[in-house]
C-alpha cells in the first residue's frame, strides 16, 4: 500500500468526523509526503556539496574542508549562511522581475519534477501512468528558463552562456528521450513503478548497455556536469549565466543545480539501475545508495576531464549519441520480442 493511502487511513482512524472531507485528507497526505521528499532532496543536495568537496579534494591530493564540524561536514552550511547574509544586488541593466521570477520558476519546476519521482514501491507522492514523460516534459522546459534568466541579467557573458546552454540542452534532449522511449518500450510502461518492476530480474543497464551509456552521457549534458559544463565554463565565461548574480540568488542557483543532479542521478537509477530493487535492505535505502554512488561517479568525472567545446559537444551529440540511441531502440524491439 502506498504511503499516502496509509496516511489517509490513519487520519480516518484518529479523526472519525473527518471522513466526510475525503479530498482534504488526500491533500494533507500528499503535502506530508511532499514535505518529506523535499527534506530528502535538501539533505541530498547538502551532502552532494560535501561529497563533491571531499572527493575532488582527494583527487587533488588535498584534504578538503576539515575544520567546521566533523570532517568539515558543516562547511557548506557556513558558506551558505555567509552567502545568504550578503546584499542582493541586481545590476542596473538587468530586468529584475524576469530575472527573479525566472530563477524561482526554475527552482519550482525542478521541485515539481522531483515530487514525481518514486523513491520506493510505497514511498511517493504521485504515481500515474505517464510520470516519466511528465518529468522529461518539465526538464525540457528548463532551457527556456535558462535563456530567459541569462538574457535578463543584461550581461554579455551571461547571455552567451545562456545561448550555449540552450543549444546544448536542445541537442542532447533527442538522444535522451530516445533512450527513455526504449526503456518504456522494453518495460511496457511509462510509470516508475512499472519500469522498476520490469527490472526485477536484471536492470536495464545490463539488458540495454548502449541505452544506458547514451542515457548517462545525455543526462550529464542535461545536468550540465563536466565535460559538458559548457554553460558555466569558469575559465572562459567567468561564471556563465550567473556572472551578475549576487550571493543570495547564487545560493538558489547552487541549490537548483544540485537538485538537478539529484534528479538526474535518480532518473538513471530508476530507469536503468533497477531503482529500489535490491536484496536485504529496504527499497528506499537501495535507491539512495544508488543515487549517492552515481553522484560520486559524476563528481569524479568532473575532477578528471577537461571541458568540451560547444561545437565538439554538439557534433558528439548528433553524430555519435543519436545514432547509438536509434540502434538502442531497435535493440529494445528485439528485446521485447524475445529475439535476444
Amino acid at each position: 500500500m502506498a504511503i499516502e493511502s496509509a496516511i489517509v487511513e490513519y487520519i480516518a482512524k484518529m479523526l472519525p468526523f473527518a471522513q466526510q472531507y475525503q479530498s482534504l485528507q488526500l491533500i494533507i497526505a500528499a503535502a506530508l509526503v511532499g514535505l518529506v521528499i523535499l527534506a530528502i532532496v535538501v539533505i541530498f543536495d547538502y551532502s552532494f556539496g560535501w561529497i563533491e568537496r571531499k572527493l575532488i579534494a582527494r583527487v587533488h591530493l588535498r584534504r578538503g574542508p576539515t575544520k567546521v564540524g566533523l570532517f568539515g561536514i558543516l562547511q557548506n552550511a557556513a558558506d551558505v549562511t555567509k552567502l545568504l547574509s550578503k546584499e542582493n544586488i541586481v545590476p542596473a541593466n538587468a530586468n529584475k522581475v524576469i530575472m527573479l521570477s525566472g530563477i524561482f520558476l526554475f527552482a519550482f519546476l525542478l521541485m515539481l519534477a522531483v515530487q514525481m519521482l518514486n523513491m520506493s514501491s510505497v514511498f511517493f507522492s504521485f504515481s500515474f501512468s505517464i510520470a516519466v514523460l511528465a518529468v522529461f516534459a518539465i526538464l525540457s522546459l528548463l532551457p527556456i528558463l535558462v535563456f530567459i534568466v541569462g538574457w535578463s541579467t543584461g550581461n554579455k557573458f551571461a547571455s552567451i552562456s545562456a545561448q550555449r546552454s540552450v543549444i546544448l540542452l536542445v541537442s542532447f534532449e533527442l538522444s535522451l528521450l530516445l533512450a527513455v522511449a526504449a526503456v518504456g518500450f522494453a518495460s511496457g510502461s511509462f510509470d516508475f513503478q512499472g519500469i522498476v518492476a520490469a527490472q526485477a530480474n536484471l536492470p536495464f543497464a545490463i539488458l540495454m548497455p548502449i541505452g544506458f551509456v547514451v542515457f548517462f552521457i545525455a543526462m550529464l549534458a542535461e545536468m550540465e556536469r563536466s565535460p559538458f559544463d559548457i554553460r558555466e565554463a569558469d575559465s572562459e565565461l567567468v561564471a556563465g549565466w550567473l556572472t551578475d548574480m549576487s550571493a543570495p540568488m547564487y545560493v538558489v542557483m547552487l541549490f537548483v543545480d544540485y537538485t538537478r543532479m539529484f534528479l538526474g542521478c535518480s532518473l538513471i537509477a530508476l530507469l536503468f539501475l533497477g531503482g529500489w530493487n535490491g536484496p536485504l535492505l529496504p527499497g528506499i535505502v537501495w535507491f539512495m545508495i544508488k543515487v549517492a554512488l552515481l553522484a560520486a561517479f559524476i563528481i569524479v568525472i568532473r575532477a578528471s576531464t577537461p571541458r568540451m567545446r560547444l561545437d565538439q559537444a554538439l557534433r558528439f551529440g548528433w553524430s555519435v549519441l543519436l545514432p547509438l540511441a536509434i540502434i538502442n531502440l531497435f535493440w529494445a524491439y528485439l528485446l521485447v520480442n524475445g529475439i535476444i
Binding site: H60, R302, A303, S304, T305, R307, M308
Partner: peptide, 17 residues
C-alpha cells in the same frame, strides 16, 4: 593551461604541489 581547457583544478593542484 589545464585549468584553461576546463580541467577542474586537478592538474593545477598536482603541478602546484
Amino acid at each position: 593551461t589545464a585549468n584553461d581547457v576546463g580541467q577542474w583544478f586537478t592538474i593545477y593542484m598536482w603541478a602546484f604541489a
